[in-house]
């Protein structure tokens, strides 16, 4: 078959967060983010949901290789985090959008952790507008069923626009 759409949210006026739920099987799920912006320069963050409730506990681990044009590629890692930072300077409009493909594994499995791979590309919104992308993954180290994914901004700014879509890969 291919990709079956589970949920989508196209933001056209500012919101504090976007939550996509509906993960209810052992299938692999994919999230596509397109042309996402912030109300002020900020970083996008990920949390997962369980029973529709956003999980803000300190159980997120992540690692990524950071591709960029202005310097030697970096490494980003952390354990026992309260969220997953998956961008580096989202802009407010025009050209500094965030675009990403995320795969979700084991979310519906109540006895396993929830895993994520992420591949993203953006123009980092700073003085030089640097091409930037995290390539890596993350995990929420709590063995219980997860049913969705939640996006928000580190600095408390709003998501001003963007399309966030959850698909099941079948």
């Amino acid at each position: 078959m291919g990709l079956l759409q589970v949920a989508t949210n196209t933001v056209t006026s500012a919101v504090a967060s976007v939550t996509l739920t509906g993960i209810d099987s052992d299938d692999v799920y994919m999230v596509a983010i397109n042309n996402a912006f912030a109300s002020a320069d900020d970083d996008y963050e990920i949390r997962i949901t369980k029973g529709g409730i956003v999980q803000s506990d300190a159980n997120y681990d992540r690692a990524s290789k950071d591709l960029k044009t202005d310097a030697v590629f970096g490494n980003t890692a952390g354990t026992n985090l309260t969220e997953i930072d998956f961008s580096a300077g989202i802009g407010t409009s025009g050209t500094n959008s965030h675009n990403e493909i995320i795969y979700l594994f084991n979310f519906a499995n109540a006895s396993e952790y929830s895993f994520i791979t992420m591949e993203n590309v953006t123009m980092r919104d700073d003085a030089n507008d640097i091409l930037f992308g995290f390539q890596g993954g993350a995990v929420h180290t709590v063995a219980s069923a997860s049913d969705g994914i939640h996006f928000f901004l580190t600095g408390g700014n709003n998501i001003s626009s963007g399309t966030f879509t959850l698909y099941k890969v079948v």
Partner: peptide
């Protein structure tokens, strides 16, 4: 390939 796994000492490890 791109993968994300648990790891005995690194908590979790990503590969591509």
């Amino acid at each position: 390939f791109q993968t994300k796994t648990g790891h005995p000492t690194q908590s979790a490890i990503m590969k591509f």
